[in-house]
Design a protein around this nucleic acid. Sequence first.
DNA 1: CCTACCGATCGGTAGG
DNA 2: CCTACCGATCGGTAGG
Lengths: 195, 195
Amino acid sequence: MAVAASEKKMAIHRAACRLFRQHGYPGTSVRQIAEEVGLDGSSLYSHVESKDDLLWEIVHEAAHQFLSALREVRDSNLGIMQKLRNAIITHVGVITSDMDSAAVYTFEWRHLPPGRRTAFTALRDEYEGMFRALVDQAIRDRYITAKDAASATLFILSALNWVSTWFKPDGALSADEVGRMLADYVFDGLRRRTA
Amino acid sequence: MAVAASEKKMAIHRAACRLFRQHGYPGTSVRQIAEEVGLDGSSLYSHVESKDDLLWEIVHEAAHQFLSALREVRDSNLGIMQKLRNAIITHVGVITSDMDSAAVYTFEWRHLPPGRRTAFTALRDEYEGMFRALVDQAIRDRYITAKDAASATLFILSALNWVSTWFKPDGALSADEVGRMLADYVFDGLRRRTA
DNA sequence: CCTACCGATCGGTAGG
DNA sequence: CCTACCGATCGGTAGG
């Protein structure tokens, strides 16, 4: 799926990701992005159609990363609870593999122009729907209990979304350890089970 | 604590909150804010020192709302688990009482100038520290189990932070019901306890 | 609270 | 990929 892209274009994407995350999309100028990759502001337009395009390409690619990773989990040959657990761990894995684009995917998509915002939310809704289908099956098979599948899914994804704001690649916990820890919290809760 | 403020100034705050939330701080112009309250752009400066000041006043006031609400819970005459439960419900209550300022508090504070950003993170850290102290006591008293108090607190606050993005005042669930639901999820987890 | 204005910077283009 | 430039808009001020 990854289209052949020049090294320069990839460098522009990385720089834009980093700056969009740090200063927000409206708080980042095309000249800042250009400077990061050693170009004059106007020269950026040899590689990129517009600032809007850059944001779209970043969030669109991130959306497909999340989607394809979750499809793989869903289509695996495992029990529903192991699938749900892997969905959590995999989601954390996608975030930590590129923290900048994950943060832009989560927090900056609302700055897309209307048409593309609609296209983006469709992708995000597809992802959440796939996640919710796993939760729903786990409820039907009586492995988990919840008020309803939608609120339980929202609860899970809330805990996951925030990871891009605090995870430290050089920290005490690896991405996998964070994923397993969050899965444990989500499934077992914090309350001590009476011995 | 609420300083006497003119109606106009409060209207400016509300408009700024709404716009900062919708378009982000850098994506909102002072002229947009002024137009919302029926003023010329330059006239805003009769009521406000600078755009920076407006953001600071909003997040500073929100921080104190969260802090004073949590202090009340902490100082109440209840068992630790009921306090922790009330801390969750109260946090959701503060968010839903003013969704715009809660969203700005959570997502826009990073656009503060350096000095004020430091002051803000001190307030936020004080809040998280107070929350963590409750979690810590619940662990020591053996009501809850967790990898550690810090990660458990992060887990709880992640689920709570996201509420400002999806809660609908006219939706099926009241603020209190959302708070109780999230408290149940956090404490009991999703996994069905074997009968 | 408005009119009139400031220098700086914005996203983007022309022409080479 | 740069030089040179476009009109629009930015946060903010002077003066009344």
